[in-house]
């Protein structure tokens, strides 16, 4: 989770990722940020993120992203 938070901090350090739960719904992460994030997550956690995973539920909070990463690692 710390590694994930560090990736998110690099992307935009103005957001409090520990508490924010509407990163997509509130427009804090746009589509370009998502793509950058996908690339970093794939490299850092050795997972493959497909378009099916690109839904707000998976990116609205750091916790949701972490759950997605763990699920993809187990698959």
């Amino acid at each position: 989770m710390e590694k994930l938070l560090s990736i998110l901090e690099d992307l935009n350090s103005d957001i409090d990722y520990e508490t924010e739960t509407k990163l997509i719904d509130n427009g804090l992460l746009d589509s370009m940020s998502i793509l950058s994030l996908v690339s970093d997550l794939e490299d850092a956690f050795d997972v493959e993120i497909t378009p099916v995973e690109l839904v707000p539920d998976n990116f609205n909070s750091a916790r949701a992203m972490w759950q997605m990463v763990q699920r993809l690692q187990e698959a």
């Binding site: 589509s31 690339s39 993120i49």
Partner: peptide, 22 residues
């Protein structure tokens, strides 16, 4: 965004090219 932007961005070709450029 959902049916062109993301699928094109996440094709193996675009991903590989992007990684090489990166």
């Amino acid at each position: 965004k959902d049916y062109i932007f993301y699928p094109v961005s996440l094709t193996h070709f675009v991903k590989n090219l992007s990684k090489k450029t990166k």
